Simulated assay, not measured.
Amino acid sequence: MSDSMTTTTVTIAGHGNDEIDAYLARPEGAQSRGGVVVIHHMPGYDRATKEIVRRFAELGYDAICPNLHHREAPGAAPDDAAAAARAAGGVPDERLLGDVAGAIAHLRALPGSNGRIGVIGHCSGGRQAVLVGCQLDVAAAVDCYGAFVTGTPPEGFPLKVTNLVDQLPALRAPLLGLFGAEDKFPGPEQVAELEQILTEHGKDFAFHTYEGAGHAFFAVDRPSYNVAAANDGWERIAAFFGTHLEG
């Protein structure tokens, strides 16, 4: 744990070598350490997500969150940028992978990096964290109630998103999944399907479902916040990254 850190907005090279903003937090000290890429939720590159980035710095990691909506509305408020991204159908998977790859490269280039990078996302970011775990070189991935890793988006769903069933056999990173029993996207049946697929393919994963918790139970600024589930979830995340990002 670190009580002192530095935070700043940096520019990184994302997909197609586009320059995008990213929020970076680093604990003070010269010790070797791992890094964490935080993938923001659909509401965007907002205060709540930046607080998560700072929490990982407090836990002793270099942490970064790329602004996935930078191209739609550079310099705009998170709500406006998210609305523009939503109107365009969301962030394409290929672009997401390019932006996260740029964030990973930025972390690995920092002084003191041990080269071991984890990725975490909530809601849409949870699905994207699983995608990253399938496609990019990361040491660990955390899916916090990511919708449509399995299952099918309902009729009229505003985002152009498909499930990741065909990608799951390629999962190369250990995966931690945290879910709410009262959630609908993903519902318990979708979580069970994901567990079955990963088991059939011999993947390294651990899932935990919280009774009485719905979607967005980590969100401290929403009525969905569930204190017990969120506190236990943070303990599991810290232990999981502690296992896979040290050394």
Rank of each mutant, 00 (worst) to 15 (best):
173 A>L: 14
172 R>E: 13
171 L>F: 10
129 A>E: 09
142 V>K: 10
179 F>E: 03
149 V>G: 04
165 V>P: 01
161 V>E: 01
189 E>Y: 00
147 A>N: 07
151 G>K: 06
134 C>A: 14
195 E>G: 08
146 G>I: 06
185 F>A: 14
161 V>Q: 06
176 L>I: 12
134 C>Y: 03
165 V>N: 00
132 V>Q: 08
176 L>K: 05
172 R>T: 15
160 K>Q: 15
179 F>S: 06
133 G>M: 10
196 Q>L: 12
133 G>P: 08
192 A>G: 04
168 L>Q: 01
143 D>C: 14
159 L>N: 08
127 R>L: 06
189 E>C: 00
179 F>P: 02
142 V>F: 10
200 E>P: 00
180 G>L: 09
186 P>V: 08
169 P>R: 13
132 V>E: 05
178 L>R: 09
133 G>W: 11
171 L>K: 05
149 V>F: 02
131 L>M: 14
151 G>Q: 05
136 L>Q: 14
153 P>W: 00
174 P>Y: 08
181 A>Q: 14
180 G>Y: 12
155 E>P: 08
193 E>Q: 15
182 E>P: 03
193 E>F: 00
173 A>M: 13
196 Q>V: 02
136 L>F: 04
197 I>Q: 08
165 V>L: 02
162 T>F: 01
183 D>M: 07
151 G>V: 00
185 F>N: 13
188 P>F: 04
148 F>K: 04
134 C>S: 11
154 P>S: 06
150 T>N: 00
174 P>D: 12
